[in-house]
Amino acid sequence: MRVMINQVEYLLPEGAKLEHALEALQAQPPFAVAINLQFIPKSNYGQCALAENDQIEIISPVTGG
């Protein structure tokens, strides 16, 4: 299935979970995740199923004002 991770297109196997997306990006902790503008708590990563065209955001700490 096709998903967008941080605005980049990825092809993941059907039935993929969020964990597959994190592996695809090789996400480095610390980070937090949202799918289609909804926050996904870390405790839900394992059971969070992805769907075609999901927009996944994986974000990390940066400087801020």
Binding site: I5, L25, Q28, A32, E57, I58, S60, P61, V62, G64
Partner: peptide
């Protein structure tokens, strides 16, 4: 101190 969040690089 203020901090923020941005997309992680691929």
């Amino acid at each position: 101190i203020t901090v923020s969040l941005r997309r992680q690089g691929s």
